[in-house]
Nucleic acid binder design. Structure first.
Lengths: 213, 213
DNA sequence: TAGATTGTTAATCGATTAACAATC
DNA sequence: TAGATTGTTAATCGATTAACAATC
């Protein structure tokens, strides 16, 4: 059975619902209501129900949603059948931070290699992930069957790395640098630029100060 | 002269336009067309013009936009009058990565202190920013006139930190952890969760694979 | 003038929310 | 039954894009 592509925002929330569900399950809960899920994410019960409707799961009018069943159902929809193999470009502070935040989180997504240029990092493991020289990217992408990359290197080198990734047929890039990447539209690109995010919050803080005067 | 609050998406793009403008200016360019700005950000010329319209700047039909004037105008709209003072909670890998990516980027936003619990970090400076013990948050927020915080500590401690921030009247929080924060709606919250972002890209990579079969 | 550009309104698209029937 | 919940359509809201007049 196949599913149409979900709205990007819904995918984000489903990922978050699942994490909450797993954590609830570990706390021994078996069921949860839409308003409880909503409260944890500061959104509305209607939105939760609508998102869950899109994955085709049906809750129970008395007990709400079965925590484990719903988590499983979300997994069937958002996970790939085979484990999706990811390369991390840059094993510096940001890169290793990504590794530790992500560690052990998801079974169907695996960061299988990281890449850097610093000689002292090569051959070492970070959170268990082996570090190669960035020059080896083309071979390793093929060899390790990598289809997605995370850019966590200095901004000024991001475009060079992206070029290599594109040439070697990567399907998606998550860019944590501030670089404006020049890549074809066929590749899914997600930009999570720290500088922009800080400026955005700063703007709304400023606005709230003006409003409260 | 005052301005109505801009749409969040526009604020993000304005921040990016400005960075491009500053970089163009450093390359010696004096003018730029909307389609050039659009190409760098992979969006459309119309959107660029519409965003610029909202900040009330007018370009030149022959030469496009004056790079420096436009950068300045964007600053007048999105920057606070006084420098906005930011606390970084967590001086680990992610926190110090934030410091180095942000360093020297913006004059009207300053990360004035970082906070951690590890004894060996206290009193040290990271990228020039002094590290205090997290217990000192209440005093330092007042003393240093901090109005915004960045959460870059382990996910399991994020809610405790947020509680202290709320009690001490922080106006905006940028949360890089995966925690679901429980804070009042009056505080601007931006969630940049790494795990969610990775899962989101993974989902669309999966979809593109299905589509290309 | 012809061609390229900006500025802006109107139309469209996508995401959220309101309303409500159905169920236990 | 009354009350609380889910599932789903319709309405609304917000963001993007199309269309086009004005200008150099």
């Amino acid at each position: 059975m196949e599913f149409p592509s979900l709205p990007p925002k819904t995918v984000e929330r489903l990922s978050q619902y699942r994490r909450i569900l797993i954590s609830c399950s570990q706390d021994g809960r078996t069921h949860i209501f839409s308003h409880e899920l909503a409260a944890k994410l500061s959104n509305t019960p209607v939105q939760v129900r609508r998102d869950i409707m899109l994955v085709g799961y049906t809750g129970n009018l008395r007990k709400g949603y079965d925590v484990l069943e719903l988590a499983e159902r979300i997994g069937e929809v958002i996970d790939a059948c085979e484990t999706l193999r990811v390369a991390l470009i840059g094993a510096g502070k940001l890169g290793t931070a990504v590794l530790s935040y992500f560690k052990g989180k998801r079974s169907k997504i695996e960061i299988v290699a990281c890449f850097d240029v610093a000689p002292e990092k090569l051959g070492k493991r970070f959170e268990g992930v082996l570090c190669y020289h960035q020059n080896e990217l083309p071979e390793r992408i093929t060899e390790l069957n990598i289809s997605m990359a995370i850019l966590a290197l200095p901004t000024e080198f991001a475009n060079d790395a992206a070029k290599v990734l594109v040439e070697n047929d990567i399907k998606g890039i998550l860019n944590y640098t501030s670089a404006n990447l020049n890549i074809p539209e066929t590749i899914y690109l997600e930009q999570y630029d720290m500088v922009t995010s800080i400026e955005k919050v700063a703007y709304f803080v400023k606005q709230s100060k003006i409003a409260n005067q």
